[in-house]
Amino acid sequence: MRWAWKIGVVRGIGIYVHFTFLLLVTWVAVGSYMARGSAADAISSILFLIPLFAIIVLHELGHALTAQRFGIQTRDITLYPIGGVARLERMPDDPRQELLVALAGPAVNVVLAGLLYLILVLRGTMESWSAVHWVSGNLLLNLFWINVVLAGFNLLPAFPMDGGRILRALLATRMDAVRATQIAAAIGQSMAILFAVFGFLSHNPFLLFIALFVWMGAAQEASVAQVKTALASIPVSHVMMTEFHVLGPDDPLRVAVQHLLAGYHLDFPVVSDGEVLGILTRSNLVEGLSRYGEAAPVAEVMSRDFLTVDASEMAEVAIARLQQMEQRSAIVVRNGELAGLLSLENIGEFLLIRGALARRRQGTRTAFPLP
């Protein structure tokens, strides 16, 4: 993963730390030092981030391992300054499975909070439940409250928090998934407005940041649901490009440059004797030009690891496979022969046109008849 460092693997799931995590470390260290002018406080605050983010990893593993039970793999877990993100290949189509996956993360925090509560009571070392001091306080008490806060915050009914997915899953048991997502997204955006108002009135920039985060997450979920529905019954043959340039493995890169500048697509199938050998992406081309020059053959820089989809395959499934492989284009075949090129850009154009026609039909139905 770009801009992230791998720190471990659990059950085949890579754990990464994004480079922006360093901003949090710096902010915590500076804030602690400025509070009392103590370097020891700054070091203690940084060290406290270790168990904090260990808890976040366990939370995300709760989602990931539950998803594995339903045959859904997790690409990776990445730690950001605002928390962790487990990138599942997809969310379960069954609302009951989605509910269990969404609940698994907060459930981990509830279990951890329960264990910490039990330890604190048995040890009898806790002075007060509210005696929380992040730098020099009772570590177990601090971790107890962190788990309580994480569970409570994530259960808020707003995307992209777990509560938004729980609400969507519950609604989806009584209505279609798109309508359920729209309702959950609307509730989430309403909460984002409340966060923004309280953040503005209390001069709390963190609440304003959360408001933006929630608003964007809700909008993205609604958009993804609409796209999924729009492409659910559309075959790849309806959205693929049928007019495109084909390159040979021995063609110099200058030929690809000419096609790129004169055409409208960014990736080119590489074909020899009717067989697709690879695909030359724009990034392949740029890297090849910088390393070898425009006289280098296409075969030198093309990608041999490419996605092939059948023209009769549903576009929704093809897009999921593209996202899973983190590719932008796929080769489309029909009866084993090259038939087209599927790209995310072309799918976007298809959805744009489909949306415009849908609005036109809706406007025609609701227009007042002329006298």
Rank of each mutant, 00 (worst) to 15 (best):
M1L: 10
W5L: 15
K6C: 10
Y16K: 02
H18M: 08
F19L: 12
L23A: 10
L24P: 00
T26C: 15
V30L: 15
S32Q: 12
M34K: 11
A35H: 11
G37A: 00
S38G: 03
A42G: 05
A42M: 04
S44I: 13
L47C: 13
F48E: 11
P51E: 03
L52W: 02
F53T: 01
I55Y: 00
V57C: 11
T66H: 00
Q68A: 06
D76Q: 14
I77C: 02
I77H: 00
L79C: 08
G84I: 01
R87W: 13
L99I: 04
L100T: 08
V101L: 09
L112P: 02
L116G: 00
I119W: 09
R123W: 14
M126W: 05
M126C: 08
S136E: 13
S136M: 11
S136L: 06
G137N: 03
L140D: 04
L140S: 08
I146Y: 03
I146Q: 07
N147V: 03
V148W: 00
V149C: 03
F153W: 00
L155K: 01
L156W: 02
A158C: 08
M161I: 07
L167W: 00
L170G: 03
D176T: 05
D176W: 01
A177E: 13
V178Y: 01
R179N: 02
I183G: 02
G188H: 01
S190Q: 09
A192L: 07
I193S: 14
G199K: 07
G199H: 09
L201T: 13
F206H: 06
A211H: 08
M216W: 11
G217E: 04
Q220Y: 07
E221S: 08
E221T: 11
T229Q: 11
A230C: 04
L231H: 00
S237C: 07
M240G: 10
E243P: 05
F244M: 10
V246L: 12
P249Q: 07
L253Q: 03
R254P: 14
L261D: 08
Y264M: 09
F268C: 07
P269E: 10
V270Y: 03
G278L: 05
I279G: 06
L280K: 06
L280D: 09
R282Y: 13
S283K: 11
S283C: 03
R291P: 08
G293N: 05
E294I: 10
A295P: 00
A296P: 02
A296I: 06
A296C: 08
M302Q: 05
L307V: 15
A315I: 05
A315L: 08
A318G: 10
A318Q: 06
A318T: 10
A320R: 13
R321K: 15
M325G: 05
E326G: 14
I331N: 04
G336C: 05
L342C: 09
L344A: 00
I347Y: 03
E349W: 08
L351I: 12
L352V: 07
G355E: 14
Q362C: 01
R365E: 15
R365M: 13
F368L: 15
F368Y: 09
